[in-house]
Computed example of a mutant assay.
Amino acid sequence: MGGTAGTNRPDDPTARQRRVWDRAADSYDQQIGLLERRLFGGGREWLATRAHGRILEVAIGTGRNLPYYPPDADITGIELSPAMLAIARQRASTLRRSVDLREGDAVRLPYPDASFDTVVCALSLCTIPDPVAALGEMKRVLVTGGRLLLLDHVGSTWPPVYALQWLVERFTIRTAGEHFTRRQLPLVRAAGFQIVETERLKAGTVERVYATKPAPAPASHE
C-alpha cells in the first residue's frame, strides 16, 4: 500500500509508488487475499486487538483492517493512492463505520504532535520509500505511551528463503518499490520506541511488532 506523497517527477520514488498502487487498486483485494491465507493469517486480528483509543492507520490501502477494529474505535486512515482510498471509503460505507480517510503522506503526516493513542501500519513499510522518516512521523503523532503496531513481510531467518527474497527484490524494488529483505524491527528500535512484543512467523518471513513511545528523557541541569 502507498505510503508517501511528494513531487510528481517521473523519477520520483513517491510518484512511482502512487502510480503502482493506483494501477493495483482494482485487483489488490483479490491478490492479497490469497497471500493473507497463506502467510498473514491472523495478522489483522492481532493488530486490531491491540489497538485502542484514537487510532491512525498509515497506508490504510483498501481498508482491509476496518472489519477487525472494535465497533467503537475512533479511526483515522491516511493513504497515498487515490484509487486505493476510494475502495477504502466504499468498504467503510459498507461496514457502516465512521472513518476519517484522507489522501496524504507517511513522511509528512498532517496531524499535530501527540494526536493519537495508536498508530497501525500493515504490509506497507516494505514499500514506503523512506521508512525511517515514516517511523519518525508515527512517533511524533503518538502520545507518550502510545502504541505502534506493525505487520509486514521481512527477510527470512532461513538462508535459502532469504536468498530467494533477495533475488526477487532485484526486480520488485526497481519496478514497484517492494522490499522483501527489509526488516522494520531494527528501525523501530533506532527510532527510540520501546519494544513490548514481537513475533516472527513462516520461516521468519512475517513479523509483528508492538512497541510504545517512551516518555521524553528529563532535561539535564548542569
Rank of each mutant, 00 (worst) to 15 (best):
W46L: 02
E103L: 14
R108T: 03
L123G: 05
G43K: 04
L150W: 06
G43H: 07
V132Y: 00
P70W: 03
G42A: 09
I55V: 15
T76F: 04
T118Y: 10
E45R: 09
V58R: 00
L142P: 03
G43N: 10
V141W: 01
V154Y: 04
N65W: 11
P67C: 11
G146P: 15
A114V: 05
A134R: 09
D100E: 15
A83S: 13
A88F: 08
R147M: 13
L142M: 13
T127E: 03
G43A: 11
R38T: 06
E57C: 09
G104L: 04
I75K: 11
V119C: 15
T76N: 05
T49R: 14
G53E: 10
I60H: 06
P70K: 00
A51N: 11
I78H: 12
E137I: 03
D100M: 12
L142Q: 12
L56H: 01
L148I: 09
S156E: 00
R89L: 08
L101A: 02
P82W: 08
T49N: 08
I60T: 15
A51K: 15
M84T: 07
W46G: 07
Y68T: 03
L142R: 03
R96H: 15
G41H: 11
V119G: 13
L149D: 06
A134Q: 06
I75L: 14
A114G: 04
K139I: 07
L109H: 01
A48S: 08
P129I: 03
V132S: 13
T118E: 14
R50T: 06
V120G: 02
T118Q: 14
F40K: 03
W158G: 00
E57Y: 08
V143G: 10
V120E: 07
M138N: 13
I60M: 15
R108E: 06
A134L: 04
G155C: 00
C121R: 04
G104V: 12
Y68L: 04
R44M: 09
L66P: 14
G155P: 03
I75A: 01
A92W: 04
A86L: 06
A86R: 13
A134K: 08
G42Y: 05
V107M: 05
Y111S: 01
A86S: 13
K139F: 08
R147F: 06
D105Y: 02
A114H: 12
G63T: 13
F116D: 13
T144G: 06
H153C: 02
R38A: 10
S115H: 09
L149A: 10
E79I: 06
P112G: 11
C126H: 07
P71E: 09
L149R: 10
T157M: 01
G155E: 00
P67H: 14
N65M: 14
E57S: 07
